[in-house]
């Protein structure tokens, strides 16, 4: 059986290697990939969309449908994780722990018991709670705003430099995940709750598809951003550039929301408690 597998793997590998011989040489100007649409995109991008970065214009404008459904796939991944993992929180199941923020004392409340102290001074903790590390906590607290600023810059600057909605959204989502890793999941949930992260991903997809639908309403084809010239200043070419920006904002929101949503579900096994 093992020999048979080895023979099959060897044959398939040899077939793949044989197939690669037919590939065009690296950087061949006569290869099919660089004969048809690529030169057109590269030559006409600035002329037609006023976007110097051809990657962004292809992603957001020429291949807008592809990107829209990529965003939808990301949203579906978030929903699938949520449906598979999320466990609805059951009220008062077993004892609960509360930690006094100032003194560090932890109280254990029996099942069905009530706490009569001001809850603002207490935080709910789990049995696996560990004290936060001072250095990590402080450094992350000062780094996170800059990370988020950089994420916004990457989204907004995708027209001129490498970047765009996907990358910027990942950076924004990673900043929330960093908060969750450096403190705990509850701190991150206080900053960006389950509902907000779950709302961000469909809203992002909605912004993308809504931009396309708006073009349709204004009498052009779906995702033909020239139509936005009726609403935005700068004529039809700048309207395409602005349309790409709108779409990138939608992508960024969807990616950020989905990343945070998936992380929360995975890290706490769907219970949204202490987690990591």
């Amino acid at each position: 059986m093992k020999t048979l597998g080895l023979i099959i793997v060897g044959l398939v590998g040899a077939g793949l290697v044989y197939a690669t011989i037919d590939f065009p040489p690296f950087g061949d100007p006569k290869s099919p990939a660089s004969l048809h649409v690529s030169p057109r995109y590269l030559e006409k991008t600035v002329e037609e969309t006023a976007v110097p970065n051809a990657v962004t214009s292809v992603l957001g404008d020429y291949r807008g449908f592809d990107t829209m459904f990529e965003t939808t796939v990301i949203f579906c991944a978030g929903v699938a994780c949520f449906l598979l993992l999320r466990i609805p929180r059951r009220r008062s199941s077993g004892p609960r722990q509360y930690r006094h923020r100032l003194t560090g004392l932890t109280f254990r409340i029996k099942e069905g018991g009530e706490i009569f102290l001001p809850l603002r001074e207490f935080e709910p903790v789990d049995s696996i709670w560990t004290p936060h590390d001072f250095i990590i906590e402080k450094v992350c607290r000062y780094l996170i705003p800059f990370i988020q600023l950089f994420g916004l810059y990457v989204i907004a600057h995708g027209h001129h430099s490498p970047g765009g909605g996907f990358q910027g959204g990942v950076i924004l989502g990673a900043s929330i995940i960093l908060l969750s890793v450096s403190h705990n999941l509850r701190t991150a949930l206080n900053r960006m709750g389950e509902k907000i992260s779950a709302l961000f991903s469909p809203v992002g997809v909605f912004i993308f598809a809504g931009t396309g639908a708006l073009c349709l309403v204004l009498g052009y084809r779906f995702l033909d951003y020239q139509a936005l010239a009726a609403l935005l200043p700068g004529g039809p070419i700048m309207a395409r550039s602005h349309g790409i920006l709108l779409v990138e904002v939608g992508v960024g929101m969807a990616v950020m929301g989905t990343m945070v949503w998936i992380f929360k579900n995975l890290a706490s096994r769907g219970r949204y408690d202490e987690g990591l």
């Binding site: 590390d133 990590i136 450094v139 992350c140 780094l143 450096s182």
Partner: peptide, 16 residues
């Protein structure tokens, strides 16, 4: 600046 802040902190976190 950010590498100077982040890299030792990351090392510290792993050691911790």
């Amino acid at each position: 600046v950010f590498v100077f802040l982040a890299s030792p902190t990351a090392t510290h976190a792993i050691v911790d």
